[in-house]
């Protein structure tokens, strides 16, 4: 009667695999073509006030939360 419990149902295998695959797809920078544009704009804004060497944007996914962390590397002279 409980034979169906022995083998994991393929739909739930599909759900697990998809969740992981999609999460890693979304993590790739190129999935969001506006990233480069956004980077340039942030550099332009910060540059108005201080010297900037580079801006790094990282996307982090932690459970249900997605976060963008933006690192602004400043010029040494300022």
């Amino acid at each position: 009667m409980f034979g169906f419990l022995e083998k994991k149902q393929s739909a739930s295998v599909a759900k697990d695999r998809l969740t992981i695959a999609i999460m890693s797809d979304r993590n790739r920078g190129d999935a969001y073509p506006f990233m480069d544009e956004m980077k340039e704009e942030i550099i332009a804004v910060v540059k108005k006030y201080i010297g900037v060497r580079a801006v790094e944007i990282k996307k982090e996914i932690d459970g249900d939360f997605e976060a963008l962390s933006i690192d602004v590397l400043l010029d040494k002279t300022t």
Binding site: A14, R17, L18, A21, I22, D25, R26, A31, Y32, P33, F34
Partner: peptide, 19 residues
């Protein structure tokens, strides 16, 4: 309701959301 269709749909939605 099939993995390749759903994964590709997510990519298409990602582009919709940015372009």
């Amino acid at each position: 309701p099939e993995v390749s269709s759903i994964r590709d749909a997510d990519r298409a939605i990602g582009i919709l959301d940015s372009k």
